[in-house]
Design a protein around this nucleic acid. Structure first.
Length: 272
DNA sequence: GCCCAGGCACATG
DNA sequence: CATGTGCATGGG
């Protein structure tokens, strides 16, 4: 188990935790890689993750927040269930060892994955960075992710100006919905199916984006986000094409209630 | 230049 | 319910 201190967390080597696998597996878009390790941002908070003797240090003014954020309480070996009974999972699990599913803030995750639709990861990062720089609170050395209020008060042309393209109206409308009472905290109590269904009522949120938000922000491991990469995996596996909902169903049947974690190993492995 | 990206909204059978 | 189409942008 990781150790909590006043200004840092120490994660011993025996824990399944590998910065590259956690931060560069497509769940997080606000991070920087540098000589010391990674600097990561969540909401208005920041942490530095660097190698230390016998493990990793997470340097931050809010260790409790990042202990939860990094999902350090979960036993990932147990969470993997019996995935390795499938030959095609052996390599993805080995390559992806050290992956953890982050508990990101709801609004930030929602907006980030609306931006992610039909987009490249480097571009997604760029749009989100410009968004934060423009209207996120100045925290000194960085900018916070903007609040729903700040986003709702911008017009569509602002979102076009930061490169959001045709997603510009979705961002404006969804921020507006949140300000007008779509309660991202209250839906925490919903069952996964109802949760994703509710999220899909927001403009710019379809099944895939809803699954990503459910997985990366609400810790719902029983979803399986189907993107272009999972389509490739599906074709390799079943030797046929299919529609996204059928693929989601088939993958769910393969992996069971923690299928979202299996998806992350496959995604990380496919994209590496 | 071309292809494509962690898809979605919307229109039509 | 299912399938088809347009979509802004820029990294590789």
């Amino acid at each position: 188990m990781a150790d909590l201190f006043k200004d840092k967390i120490f994660i011993p080597e025996r824990e399944e935790f590998r910065p590259h696998a956690v931060f560069e597996c497509g769940q997080l878009f606000r991070y920087e890689r540098n000589d010391e390790g990674y600097t990561i941002f969540s909401g208005d908070k920041m942490a530095k993750v660097c190698e230390a003797k016998g493990g990793y240090d997470v340097l931050t003014s809010d260790p409790l927040y990042f202990y939860n954020y990094l999902d350090l309480d979960r036993d990932y070996e147990a969470a993997r269930c019996d995935f390795s009974k499938y030959d095609f999972m052996v390599d993805p699990i080995r390559n992806g060892k050290g992956i953890r599913i982050l508990k990101q803030q709801h609004f930030e995750t929602l907006i980030s994955f609306i931006i992610s639709a039909n987009n490249h990861i480097p571009r997604i990062k760029g749009i989100i960075n410009r968004l934060c720089e423009a209207i996120g609170k100045d925290m000194g050395s960085y900018h916070a992710f903007p609040t729903a209020e700040a986003m709702a008060s911008e017009n569509v042309s602002f979102y076009e100006s930061i490169g959001a393209g045709y997603r510009a109206p979705y961002l404006q409308a969804t921020a507006r919905s949140v300000v007008d009472g779509f309660n991202l905290e209250a839906i925490e109590s919903l069952q996964t199916e109802e949760l994703t269904c509710k999220l899909c009522s927001l403009l710019g949120v379809g099944p895939k984006v809803a699954d990503c938000v459910a997985l990366f922000s609400y810790s719902r491991f029983d979803v399986f986000p189907v993107d272009t990469w999972m389509k490739k995996v599906y074709v390799d596996l079943f030797n046929k094409e299919n529609n996204p909902s059928a693929m989601r169903k088939d993958f769910r049947a393969l992996f069971g209630s923690n299928c979202g974690l299996a998806q992350q190993y496959l995604f990380y492995n496919k994209r590496d």
